[in-house]
């Protein structure tokens, strides 16, 4: 029994790693295509049909490129930082039920690595640890732009961790559990949480942009003022790991938002699973959509937004939820 469990878990971990890495690669393709279409361009077209093999070409390029380590960097930390970014994105996905459980050759498969009963807290924690990638990468780089980026990263992640936690607290109060499967079952019975917690949904969504560092809050690696922030000194596959981490994070968040607020996979039927994938696709698309449409905010505006607007709203939301539940 224990061996079977071990083998099953290892298979799940490998599948998640492979699927998320592949999704991260495909994510870059989708991003380039969709941004191109929104800007009346075609995007990658030459490698393969409709440029589909561009992902492979980029991968080959990143793997074979020279790995430059500048003289004055703190070597080990510099090498470690990209791994942290990629690893935390994969680690966080251990507590996510990607699909409803299904039968495969007469064996019941739960598409979740570990249904720990503190799932959401674990996700929040691991996403918080994800801050160490930019932070250590920036501090080890011996570069002023990287240091600025590291400082910004620390500020943004700490601040928006507060908003994420507080906004998610109201749904947790309603469900009474921290497990995402319990969230799903609650919503299958009582309707989607977004209808009773629209404010929490919007707050969580906004904070998700900050946690993944996507465009309206794309300040950690802001190309036009701090070059590439923590990624300035990186090249080759180390830079690629930062990239994979960022896109895996985006996919991961796109799974978490529907699971918490939009009903998850519903009652566990095939339609529910497809609906979950559809919702995930929409949220991922929205990340790209905003990148085409919106400008970045300033760092001080970002902090202002977090502490003076979003956090009070989140607290008021929790108080109102508590009053209603009493």
């Amino acid at each position: 029994m224990e061996t079977a469990y071990l083998i099953e878990t290892i298979i799940k971990i490998v599948v998640i790693l492979l699927v998320f890495s592949a999704l991260a690669g495909l994510g870059t393709y989708f991003e380039r295509k969709i941004l191109a279409f929104m800007q009346r361009r075609l995007g990658p077209m030459y490698v393969g049909p409709f440029g589909l093999l561009q992902v492979a070409a980029d991968g080959v390029k990143l793997f074979t490129k020279e790995d430059i380590i500048p003289t004055n960097v703190v070597g080990r930390i510099f090498k470690l930082a990209p791994v942290i970014t990629a690893a935390t994105a994969f680690m966080a996905s251990a507590a996510i039920p990607f699909l409803p459980s299904f039968e495969l050759f007469g064996y019941k498969v739960n598409p979740i690595v570990s249904d720990i009963n503190i799932g959401i807290l674990y996700i929040l924690g691991v996403m918080g640890v994800g801050l160490y990638g930019p932070l250590l990468g920036g501090m080890a780089s011996a570069n002023k732009f990287s240091l600025i980026s590291a400082a910004r990263g620390a500020a943004v992640f700490i601040s928006y961790e507060v908003v994420t936690g507080l906004s998610i607290l109201a749904p947790i109060m309603m469900v009474g559990s921290l497990s995402l499967i319990d969230f799903n079952n609650y919503q299958a019975e009582n309707g989607w949480i977004i209808w009773s917690q629209p404010v929490a949904f919007i707050l969580f969504w906004i904070a998700a942009f900050a946690e993944t560092g996507r465009t309206p809050f794309h300040l950690i690696a802001n190309d036009h003022e701090i070059i590439d922030g923590f990624g300035t000194e990186y090249s080759g596959m180390r830079w690629g790991l930062f990239f994979i981490g960022e896109y895996a994070n985006m996919f991961f968040i796109s799974f978490v938002i529907p699971l918490i607020f939009l009903g998850g996979f519903g009652d566990g039927s095939v339609m529910g699973a497809l609906a979950l994938l559809g919702k995930m696709a929409f949220f991922f698309f929205f990340f790209l959509w905003t990148r085409a449409a919106w400008p970045d905010v300033r760092p001080d505006q970002l902090m202002w937004l977090c502490w003076k607007v979003l956090m009070p709203i989140a607290v008021i939301n929790i108080v109102i939820t508590g009053l209603v539940m009493m």
Partner: peptide, 18 residues
Amino acid sequence: GAVQIVVYSGAVMALYAF
């Protein structure tokens, strides 16, 4: 354990880094 990760690694150590 979760509080340890969130508070120590997420907040305290980041403050130290700052």
